[in-house]
Amino acid sequence: MNNLIEFFKRAFHIIVLAVLLILSIVMLGKSLSFNENRLARAVQSIVGPIQESGAGMIHRFRLGPENEELVKQNIELMREHENMFIGKEDTVMTEMGKPDSVNRKQVRLYDYTYAHVIYRTVDRAFNYMIVDKGSNDGIARDMAVLSPSGVAGVVTDVAQNFATVRPILHPESRISAVVTPANQNGTVIWEGSDPRVAYLEAIPQHSEINIGDSVFTNGYSNIFPKGLLIGTVKEVQVGNNASFLTIKVKLATKYTDIYTVYLVENLFKDELDTLKANFKDE
């Protein structure tokens, strides 16, 4: 008996070793069968939250490059949207010089690029933003600036590597807009100090505007493509001017945390501007 106890004492660590190794092998075997892994599930419920916060931390370091990729992908998708094109008809002539068939084709009217806001103000009467791209990157005056959530402003001044953007939050900012579903055209202006709210002007009093209606660009300006969200109707009042409504618009763009912006270039801007200038002269 004594011998037996003595033996166990001496061999105890070997037994522990064997038990632990067998346990490991069993766990390994269990983990290889995908269906029934209760151990993994039990442990995951403890480890999961810890791991999640850790992964979040590490993910944050990678957000920069990932965002750049997503922005580029966004641009590719946005370029294909129908409001980027105008329809044209090409008449194909026969050899005899008579019209044969009509080719409808889409001509690209707008193109996109992107930039990052490196400085912006929101609390002044004349606000402005500066983006990190300039004439070297193909930025030009009067390009439209969009935030991921909606219209942001217009490029007003371009240096070699930077450009100034006039946001909606500027007394001189005027954007032609259409409010749906009433389909009334008006102008979005900003007055006052609230960076979240602008006004929609020149909407006739008879139109039925409801709170929550969306305000889009109408594409009249040749700066903004058609159908970009400016904001939503927040308040409708009968103004002093009897024939028009005063409409408060909650801006879609959050100017307080704007970083990535998309810039829209009108490829036929010169042509369209010439036409408009001619019209004015007459």
Binding site: L21, V26, L28, K30, N37, L39, V43, I46
Partner: peptide, 11 residues
């Protein structure tokens, strides 16, 4: 537990 490789490291 953190690597989802049950048994590997323990063994």
């Amino acid at each position: 537990a953190f690597a989802h490789t049950f048994g590997v490291s323990s063994f």
